[in-house]
Each structure stands twice: as structure tokens, then as C-alpha cells.
Design a protein around this nucleic acid. Structure first.
Lengths: 191, 191
DNA sequence: CCAATTCCGAGACGATCGGTCTCGGATCAG
DNA sequence: CTGATCCGAGACCGATCGTCTCGGAATTGG
């Protein structure tokens, strides 16, 4: 028999919206499923029927909330330095805001804690952003703007990692000047 | 009155040893204070008398367990490329091992979750390693092996961040080849 | 329209864990 | 000896995760 009530789309949205709001407001550790259910006006079973764990809910909330790629776009003006600078500056601006910092800390906590969640987030969040960067670097290499000594994945990893380290060290948020210097360093190294 | 029983050094050591072992074995999230107390043969109150939280115990355990700097030394042979390569290779080897990965994931989880713990870990773990790197870069700059365009803190952040990203993405652990390419990229950029 | 099926919100429930408190006993200074 | 402080052990509390149950609502096949 194929009968039966269908999944409520409004409940699904309410759950993800509540999870996203509470995540940014309280952080991953202090986000509780009870609070998500209460704020969404939903029974807990409705959450656990569709998501296996707290981490899975958070991952989906992030990925469906306008935070997924390409919410920081990577333009292609033909000049790799201009484009990388714009991309890295947009990220630093986002990460310097409270929302961006909370987001990355939450994703990092979830990643460090649960391997399955880490894989989902890499596949649907980190990976696509990294791929965006790699594609642009490849096109720059094809245009002769990059030397061939250093592989594109290494360059992408260095750019992303330098950003990540600034956020995770929780000392001083990255600035536009930092972004520019990283771009200069990396491009000088591959020119 | 100054009387009273003195703090038991053997209990302190047993607690930190147990915490370190359980941290590497189970990760930060699944490490419980009950388990630490049981494995150390100690009452829970003895833990909470001297440490304020689980994060504080973990931070101390890491910092006192031979995991603190400079367990990865940074030599000074006079050639910055040789030294950076040795340092980054040692780190990649450590991080590619299960212990190193577990350690970094645990520290990252603790950092992302608790600001106070983040500050302690930066002050006594990350910061000293970063300082080691900065000092060596400064001496290279003084020796004329580095151009003056990119600030030393930026260079250090890029080197550390590229490592961190590889570990946190949980996709493939970094290799010696990766380390060499990062060094080549960074040094070409600042030569 | 009816029956079977599946989802819904609500909330009770058991298990786990962080952190506090209490207890009898041990160790220190004076 | 006395008072203070620490010790191991474990009861206890509150929060939280995840499961389970309940009556009710939606949906489909007959």
C-alpha cells in the first residue's frame, strides 16, 4: 500500500530555519534538538524521522540556508589577481562578521566531532568552494598567468587554509589587508 | 591556619595521563570526566577541585603530555628552505598518523566550542609553534633570504593554515610532497 | 465512503554526562 | 591533639540526546 500522509514541507522548512537561527545565535555545542523542535513548533520525532543526528540537521540547515555555495562568488575578469583578491576579500568580510565566524566555528566543531557529518559538509560545502577556486586557477593557468611548478590543488589549499587558520585561532579576525597580502604571496610564488 | 593535606602530585599526573589517553582514543566529544576519573583511580571532585571544566582538563593534558612545543622542532641550518621543509615534513608526518589527527581534531573541537579554552590553547600550544616559525622567518629575513613585501606573520599563517586545512577537511592526510610544494610556493612568493 | 497506512505535534521516558555535594578517612601545620 | 585541607567514592541534580507512545490528521487504494 502506498497510502499515508505525506511529509510536511512546512515542517521541514521550519526545522531547518530554526536550526540555522539557533546555530548562529548559540553555536553548535549549545544548540539543542529540543530547542529546535520548540522553535519550529514541531515534535522531536519529526526531526529524528528525517535526520539521523544533530549534526545531520545542522549540516542540512547550513546547506539550505543561503550559506551554501556560491554565496561567495568568484568572478572571472581575466585577471587572476583581481579575481582572487575579490574572492578572498569577500570571504574575509564574511568571516569577520559575527555570523560568519559562528558559522565556521559551528561547521568546524561538527566536522571534528563526527566523520559522517564531515564528509557531507566537505561534499556539499567546502568541496564546492574549493572546486570553484580550483577551476578559476586552472583557467588562469591555461591563460598563462600561472607558472606550472605548483599544482592547483596546493594553491587552493593554501588560500583556504590561511583563511581558516585566522578564524580558528580566534585571535584576530582576518582583514582585507591580510587577504591582499596572501594573494600577493601566493601569486608571486606561482607567477 | 596553613595546615591541611597537600595536593597529590600522583593524582594530578594520573588525571592528565588518563585524559590524554582517552582523548586520543575516543576524541574530545566522547571523552567523559567519569571515564577520566575511573581510569585515573580518582574521585571526580579531585578533578573539579583543580580544573574548572572538561575543556580545561583536556587543555592541560595536551600541554603537559609531551605534545606541547617544541615537540616538532624547527632547525636553523642557515638555509630557510631546508629548515621549513624539515619542519613542515615533521608536522605532516605527525598529522598523518592517527595520533596527530586525533589530537588536532580534539583541539579544534575544544577551540570551536569554548572561547576560554581556545585562548589557553592558543597561548600555550598554537601560539608558541607559530612564534617558533615567525622567529625563524625573521632570521631568514635578516639574512636576506626573504624579500620584504610580505609580512612574516602572513607567511607563518599561510604555512600553518595549509596544514590545518588538510587535516580538518578530513579528506586525505597531508604528505611529504604536499609539504615540499607548500614550501616551494611560499618561498617563491617571498624570495 | 472506508480502511490501511504514514505522518504529525506533544510529551513521557531511559540513558548519559557535566558538574555539585556529601561522606569517612588521610595528611599536613602548629 | 586540633583544625584545616585534600583524598577516593559515589549519590545526586539538571540538561540533553534519542526512543517510544499517544491520539489525531492526511493520503491512497478499493
Amino acid at each position: 500500500m502506498t497510502g499515508g500522509r505525506r511529509r510536511s514541507e512546512s515542517s521541514r522548512r521550519a526545522i531547518l530555519d530554526a536550526a540555522r537561527g539557533l546555530l548562529l545565535e548559540r553555536g553548535y555545542e549549545r544548540l539543542t534538538i529540543d530547542a529546535v523542535a520548540a522553535q519550529a513548533g514541531v515534535g522531536k520525532q519529526t526531526i529524528y524521522r528525517w535526520w539521523g543526528s544533530k549534526g545531520a540537521v545542522v549540516a542540512d540547515a547550513v546547506l539550505e540556508g543561503g550559506l551554501a555555495p556560491p554565496f561567495v562568488p568568484l568572478p572571472d575578469t581575466g585577471d587572476i589577481e583581481t579575481d582572487l583578491r575579490a574572492w578572498l576579500r569577500a570571504w574575509t568580510a564574511h568571516l569577520a562578521s559575527g555570523v560568519g565566524t559562528s558559522l565556521i566555528l559551528a561547521l568546524t566543531a561538527a566536522t571534528a566531532e563526527d566523520r559522517a557529518v564531515a564528509d557531507v559538509l566537505y561534499e556539499r560545502f567546502t568541496g564546492p568552494h574549493e572546486q570553484l577556486l580550483r577551476d578559476r586557477l586552472e583557467s588562469a593557468r591555461a591563460a598563462g598567468q600561472l607558472g606550472s611548478q605548483v599544482p592547483v590543488p596546493t594553491i587552493a589549499g593554501v588560500l583556504i587554509g590561511s583563511l581558516l587558520y585566522r578564524v580558528l585561532s580566534r585571535q584576530a579576525p582576518p582583514t582585507a589587508d591580510d587577504a591582499d597580502m596572501v594573494v600577493r604571496l601566493v601569486l608571486a610564488g606561482v607567477a
